[in-house]
């Protein structure tokens, strides 16, 4: 039952996010991270790999959830949608690392451990792809992500229009997702 309640809450947050409430959307992604982390760790361990790469998989999965958020049908349960994306990205990551595994049919119901904290140091993460972005996109992504600037603050700090910041941020994030796909880890 607990899982059911949790997924309903995610669906509420996602609907609010899709309606333009960035705060709810951020809250959703923060709630998802520990669950995705537990899922990634378990998948890596099952494939006989170190779970130090888990954070890399978590970040790639969050990017995919974000960039494909329009493929969730707001009337459908959100759990199967999230799990399908997480599984797809995990299989992808394992394949790039030279492992082919068939993940057993699982779902979020088995992933209850929400106490998984972000590790303080990780083997690989989205940073290694930042350098590949065009300078304009890179600085916008960095100012907003690392320095915590809003769109408005980023615009004034980088002397750009708000529209230009939005476009650079969106393109930058899409490019990061593409870099994950291209690299052989």
């Amino acid at each position: 039952m607990r899982v059911d309640v949790r997924e309903k809450e995610w669906a509420v947050l996602m609907r609010a996010g899709n309606a333009g409430d960035a705060g709810s959307y951020q809250q959703l992604l923060r709630q998802l991270s520990p669950v995705l982390r537990a899922l990634a760790r378990r998948g890596l361990v099952r494939a006989g790999m170190a779970d130090a790469d888990a954070e890399d998989v978590v970040q790639e999965t969050l990017l995919a959830i974000h960039l494909k958020r329009q493929t969730w049908d707001a009337d459908a349960p959100i759990g199967p949608w999230l799990f399908a994306i997480a599984r797809h990205k995990l299989i992808d990551a394992l394949r790039r690392r030279g492992r082919r595994i068939d993940l057993p049919i699982d779902d979020f119901a088995e992933i209850l451990s929400s106490g998984e904290n972000e590790p303080s140091s990780v083997a690989a993460d989205v940073n290694r792809h930042l350098g590949c972005l065009p300078a304009g996109q890179r600085s916008v992504v960095q100012v907003i992500a690392v320095d915590g600037a809003s769109i408005d603050e980023a615009a004034s700090r980088l002397s750009l229009s708000k529209g230009a910041v939005r476009v650079a941020l969106h393109r930058g994030l899409a490019a990061l997702a593409a870099k994950f796909r291209e690299t052989e880890a």
Binding site: Y25, E55, H66, L130, A145
Partner: peptide, 22 residues
């Protein structure tokens, strides 16, 4: 980049409405 930082960037990008597949 911390995952929390990435999430902040994703949330900032959430204003862009994407077209549903249909």
């Amino acid at each position: 980049m911390k995952t929390g930082d990435l999430i902040r960037a994703l949330a900032a990008d959430s204003e862009i409405r994407l077209r549903p597949p249909g």
